[in-house]
Design a protein around this nucleic acid. Sequence first.
DNA 1: GGTCCACTGGAATCGCGGGCCG
DNA 2: CGGCCCGCGATTCCAGTGGACC
Length: 350
Amino acid sequence: MIADPAVFDDEHLPRRLLHREAAVDHLSRAWEPALGGDRAHDVLIHGPPGVGKTALTRHSLKKLTGHVDVQTAHVRCLGKTTAGVVRSVLHDLPGSDPSVNVPREDLCIQLQERVTSPVIVVLDEADGLPSTDALDRLVDVENLSVVVICHNPDEWLSRLDGRLRRRLSFTEFGLDRYHVDELADILEARARRGLPSGVITREQLEAIADKVAGVARKGIQALRQAALLAEERDHSEIESDDVADAFERAKRYILEQNLKSLPFHHQLLYELIRVGGGLQAGELHERYEAVADDVYRGRGQTPVSERSRRLKLSKLEEYELIKVEGVNRHRTYTASDQEVESPILVNLTV
DNA sequence: GGTCCACTGGAATCGCGGGCCG
DNA sequence: CGGCCCGCGATTCCAGTGGACC
């Protein structure tokens, strides 16, 4: 049933960006100086996850670079160090890719040298940066301007010191969840490109848009899962039970992708928590030690310390794979979705 | 109130893998 | 080639936290 799977990818950029006209205007005005070879204004975009902040910047940058000579870089900040951010910028700019062990200072010098005309750097998921250090380095570069994407603008701005406040000239705006009819338009456009015509009705699209409360990412994944369900059930078009069952599957799919992307240690901890049906910290460590020797054998890896496990547990929480409740010795870890299993750890016996 | 203690998370430090340079 | 230096994940150490129990 799915004619073009790429249409439902998270990274897919539609040809036309619907219902974001005001935001597109904001960006073009901020970047206007770059048309004349000057440094563009800095931009701060905020809004809840999944409403298209990244898509908006990617789309607008593509339009801009289509007719002006401006270099751009897109950095996913989550979990990156200062050096990691600078390295990522250099990676996106033309020129050679610096190797992993180039000192931070050298990276900054390379950046200074390479930026000779206007460059726009997108700092995506900027809430994930541990400090403003990376930003300090970037604003030192003449001709370089930033687009900061974050969830909570007040919290983010409060982290800036006086120097950064003076240096940055933020145009700030927020993106909100879409209205039901707006998101339905977006889903309709995707369906037109990715599905055979007539397999889903406008009413069904509106039902999806309503159920996901205007969050585009969830809506698009739900649409995809509805089509997959219809296919599995040999329906010639998407039926109401396909739509009804799509939401759970979409949520699960996102979690499964997250889990799959994590290293073995994380997946083992996750499975212990899931199979244990929720565990207290002491119990979790006990079980980890009980199975560790067996499970790690033949993997070329060794069990990790309690401290490292705690660091991995916060990562699992960050990815919403587990829920953490309570304080101190009463803290419990629970799997967000019992059905989401690790693909590399089947039949874990405890 | 006071003490106990399991657990958390910050900071310092270690060591491995890999590029660089004489 | 061998010594050097880097980043980064892992480890070690430890102060802080707050409920349990007296």
